[in-house]
Design a binder for these strands. Structure first.
Lengths: 178, 178
DNA sequence: CCTCCCCTTCTACATCTGTAGAAGACTCTA
DNA sequence: TAGAGTCTTCTACAGATGTAGAAGGGGAGG
């Protein structure tokens, strides 16, 4: 599917050069397609942005590992996976920032589902599950951001390694504690 | 100082329209200066970006409230302050994302100082202060991000209110617990 | 008063970008 | 095999953008 080729190239571009690098022609070049291809599939830039955001959302469905036997381990693995998929996660952050001034894009925020977190907090016996769920979500978001673009991106363990997993697991365990 | 006028306008622009909105002429218009002014002060776009990032860094020195008598309260107040200063914080996130592919910009990451967090964790008697400090930093980052652009931006309490402060304080208190 | 220097404003121009439509190639069905 | 409809590629063009240099103005020091 040519459309997926295009949106995938767009995701890489955004990750590597930011929203500013996302132009019809740049996508053409990145995807190795003849000039004009991107413009044909996404006539306006708005459409192009929505296209790549939709692709992101599509790929991030059901990525969250929730293993009842090893809750912290599963969540840690999920986060580590996002760290490994660096480009996709970076593109997601760019899109979230963009969604700040273009509310149509809120789609991507589907991920990091708060209801799920709230239910989890409830199951774990937190006093105020609503709030605990929000805080837990915030913590996960923060861990991810910190390790991907924040201070932890230079100093922290390399994603995908055992060390990274162990580090994340410890953090998640703490966050899960009532 | 004309230069500050320009960089401040640039910060607002980036917050409101993203990096893509940051052009010499747009800054001129935003700052109410005649066309060409920004270009005169920052000949290249790279210089313009570095200019506004430097301005951000300059303003964020010593903003972190560390009250020994009320640790959580002080930190919560700090975070709430960042939420209130929405534009500056949004611009900072945009810059951090940009720093991903332009390492010269790492300056801004001065904020959220890890050593400080590590020392704090040590003082609080965590087993592994290094790691606890990193996790604490991550949590703060996450809280901020979540409330500013993530899920919490639509549902959470309004920054600057007592409710917001109380919410943040509860979160911070939990994060501080050994 | 003149002169020099810096700050500011204006103008120019090559290049990039968004967007549209025409032209051509391919595919599937009848 | 012919035709219709779609997918793909090419070309055009107006407007925005980055960047440079020329022109203008005002103040400080002599």
């Amino acid at each position: 599917m040519r459309k997926d080729l295009i949106t995938d190239a767009a995701i890489d571009l955004v990750a590597e050069q930011g929203m500013r690098g996302l132009t019809h022609r740049a996508v053409d070049r990145r995807a190795g397609l003849p000039e004009g291809s991107t413009s044909a599939y996404f006539r306006t830039r708005k459409a192009l942005v929505e296209g790549f955001v939709a692709r992101l959302a599509e790929q991030e469905q059901r990525e969250i590992v929730l293993d009842p036997a090893d809750l912290a381990g599963g969540i840690a693995k999920t986060i580590d996976g996002w760290l490994v998929e660096r480009n996709r996660t970076l593109a997601r952050y760019a899109a979230m920032l963009e969604a700040t001034h273009h509310p149509e894009l809120r789609t991507i925020m589907v991920h990091s589902p708060r209801e799920q977190a709230t239910a989890l907090a409830e199951a774990l016996g937190h006093a105020d599950p609503e709030r605990a769920g929000a805080h837990f979500t915030a913590f996960i978001e923060g861990l991810l951001f910190y390790r991907l673009v924040g201070g932890g991106s230079t100093k922290g363990p390399t994603p995908g390694t055992e060390e990274s997993l162990a580090d994340l697991r410890a953090a998640v365990e703490k966050a899960l504690r009532p």
